[in-house]
Amino acid sequence: MDQQQQQNNPIEMALQEYKQGIGNFTQKMPNIAKKFNAFTEACFEEGKLSQKEKQMIALGISVYSQDEYCIIYHAKGCIDQGCTEEEILETVGVTAAFGGGAAMSQAVTLVQECISELGGNNSQMQ
């Protein structure tokens, strides 16, 4: 994807906005940002659960809480960790069992858009 396509892609734009916001926050509140980043990095380290499984959990929580930036970030995380489209959709399907129509609406719109824009639309995405 070239620079112009990235600028016109709403998913890529949201990722850039998030990175910019984190950068600004880090400059203004370095102590808090450092501790927050260390905590989240520790939470996502490989352990009894794989990083892939942790990204799937985070995506489910993001969909349930209707946090669009986190949905995009963790959908990308799932893709980066090698999740297939079916694994991602199964994850958000379980989320919809708890979150109802609001979670399902995110699954059939934003999550599908992330899959299409960030990982291709094939079933393996690897």
Results as ranks from 00 to 15, higher is better:
residue 12 E to V: 06
residue 90 E to N: 07
residue 89 L to T: 09
residue 41 E to A: 13
residue 114 C to A: 09
residue 116 S to H: 15
residue 91 T to H: 06
residue 94 V to I: 07
residue 121 N to R: 06
residue 71 I to M: 03
residue 28 K to Y: 05
residue 35 K to R: 13
residue 107 A to T: 10
residue 14 A to T: 02
residue 91 T to L: 07
residue 9 N to Y: 01
residue 59 L to T: 02
residue 50 S to T: 04
residue 43 C to E: 15
residue 17 E to W: 03
residue 42 A to H: 14
residue 53 E to V: 11
residue 45 E to N: 06
residue 83 C to W: 06
residue 91 T to V: 14
residue 24 N to H: 12
residue 78 C to P: 01
residue 59 L to F: 09
residue 113 E to W: 15
residue 64 Y to R: 07
residue 97 A to E: 07
residue 97 A to Y: 05
residue 123 S to T: 12
residue 74 H to E: 01
residue 106 Q to V: 11
residue 66 Q to P: 07
residue 38 A to D: 12
residue 9 N to W: 02
residue 44 F to S: 09
residue 65 S to M: 15
residue 81 Q to S: 14
residue 41 E to I: 10
residue 41 E to D: 14
residue 58 A to I: 00
residue 79 I to E: 01
residue 58 A to K: 02
residue 33 A to T: 04
residue 120 G to Q: 05
residue 12 E to Y: 05
residue 2 D to W: 14
residue 94 V to E: 04
residue 17 E to R: 00
residue 114 C to E: 03
residue 43 C to D: 14
residue 36 F to L: 06
residue 17 E to G: 01
residue 94 V to T: 04
residue 52 K to C: 04
residue 89 L to F: 13
residue 73 Y to N: 04
residue 71 I to Y: 03
residue 66 Q to N: 15
residue 32 I to G: 03
residue 90 E to Q: 10
residue 104 M to G: 08
residue 98 F to H: 13
residue 74 H to V: 12
residue 23 G to W: 12
residue 94 V to P: 02
residue 77 G to M: 01
residue 103 A to P: 06
residue 25 F to C: 08
residue 68 E to L: 09
residue 71 I to E: 01
residue 96 A to K: 03
residue 102 A to C: 11
residue 115 I to L: 06
residue 81 Q to K: 14
residue 42 A to G: 13
